[in-house]
Design a protein around this nucleic acid. Structure first.
Lengths: 249, 249
DNA sequence: CTAAACTATCACGTTACGTGAGGGTCAACA
DNA sequence: TGTTGACCCTCACGTAACGTGATAGTTTAG
């Protein structure tokens, strides 16, 4: 009932080497290994491989794919629905490329010069790929953060811990005030500054969204409310005020 | 009127590093370079870049793209028409992926198990990419040949020259006979053998097609008929007979 | 039993850039 | 004119995702 590498490779249109590679990096480990060391893939493995290939098709890196599929909340059905939407958008992009070809041909027929921007309509991957990543919590900010933090030393982390702890404590101590209070806002400014300094370039928009996430995402809420019950909600309000003020300038 | 790297990169949705790379490998060299060493891209460069990006989008490697665009017969209009067709086929493939998603979802709803092959419908790039390459004379055989011959020494080439020369001379000496003649067929068998040995795995089908090309492609005809006028046509006939016999087994 | 097909691991190489370092050039502004 | 930020250059190591070939064990059909 289980398949060896050649069969799976042929089924999926990939190479045996690819399957070896996926095994090595923990992306797709066969459910069984025979006594002689042969990889044996089950139906469940095939289902996972299908997901891997859809994510890969949509532009995700293998490391990213692993994190997404391995996360506790991963839901196969939801994933398929997301894939479908993103594939439909891929079609839109190809439509744009075809349209651009047509317009180039037309310009040539007419002997006129095409607007330069129109010549490259549809080639820009980044918009589509960024959207795909954001659907799975792998935004540009997340990636920037990963890029930066991978080089941090223990000392760096200790400093981050200390600085953020200070802000959390500060915010706890002023929780009885209005979120617009000057001291509250000063702690929020420091929080914003720390994120920019240690993690990623944090625009006003992103900072506001982060505040929303503190409340909307249970993991954030749970983590922050360790300092004081209701801190996450308080921070969200204060961050919104802060952003309103920044944008009012 | 000319653009520097940042402007071009933004226009085309690629990185500055990519433009540097393309310059390095001779794929897209700017028409001008300023006194201070700045790359300056003209309208003509943008047109070439557009072609590069279309080929890249369709799965060609950069080396391949360079060869195609630089070949004497390259025609921009024809290229655009080809791109259009291949992009339309890309859409077909994505349609298959979407269809496969739908079928997976349906199977899940019904609690049934999907046919394994259906799970991976649409993922196989190779068929489409091989077709794209064949449109530009970069078939699997061409690539195999390149892969093998890049490692050949002068001695290898001398041997190849000698062996093929012997076959050509042999065929010339029997040109007055029927293409089905045993001795003619023996020379053809040797020719087939040499191709398999030195260049690529040559199926009957491919060998037959090669014979057709000897006549249909002027470059082949001209080269082969150096040995004797009419040799290319004679070889084609003999090769067809040879293949008919192989397939008759 | 045998040979061909399949399997494994190992490891270097390839492709197409990404990234950071170090330094020169350009243009707007004080 | 000097300054500063944005843009430019070359250099070169690193990355991601395998491809390729070598060597050797295992399976399967004739």
């Amino acid at each position: 009932m289980a398949h060896t590498v050649k069969a799976v490779a042929e089924l999926a249109g990939i190479s045996v080497r690819t399957l070896h590679h996926y095994d090595e990096i923990g992306l797709l480990k066969p459910a069984q290994v025979s006594a002689s060391g042969y990889r044996l893939y089950t139906q469940s493995d095939l289902e996972r491989l299908q997901q891997v290939l859809y994510f890969k098709e949509l532009g995700f890196g293998l490391h990213e794919i692993k994190e997404i599929i391995d996360s506790p909340g991963f839901d196969r059905k939801r994933a398929l629905l997301e894939h479908r939407q993103l594939l439909a958008e891929r079609q839109n992009r190809i439509e744009k490329l075809i349209h651009s070809v047509d317009r180039t041909l037309e310009a040539m027929e007419r002997g006129i010069q095409m607007a330069e921007k129109d010549m490259f309509e549809g080639f820009d991957h980044t918009k589509y790929e960024e959207e795909a990543r954001q659907r799975w919590g792998h935004s540009e900010e997340y990636r920037q953060s990963e890029q930066r933090t991978k080089k941090y030393t223990k000392a760096d982390w200790a400093q981050i811990q200390q600085e953020s702890g200070a802000v959390y404590q500060g915010l706890v101590s002023v929780m009885d005030r209005d979120p617009a209070d000057p001291e509250v806002q000063e702690w929020v400014r420091q929080w914003h500054e720390q994120i920019n300094k240690w993690f990623y370039q944090c625009s006003t928009e992103v900072f506001r969204g982060l505040g929303d996430m503190y409340v909307a995402d249970e993991r954030f809420t749970k983590n922050i409310d360790k300092y004081a019950t209701g801190l996450a909600a308080f921070m969200k309000e204060a961050m919104h005020v802060y952003c309103d003020r920044l944008e009012g300038k």
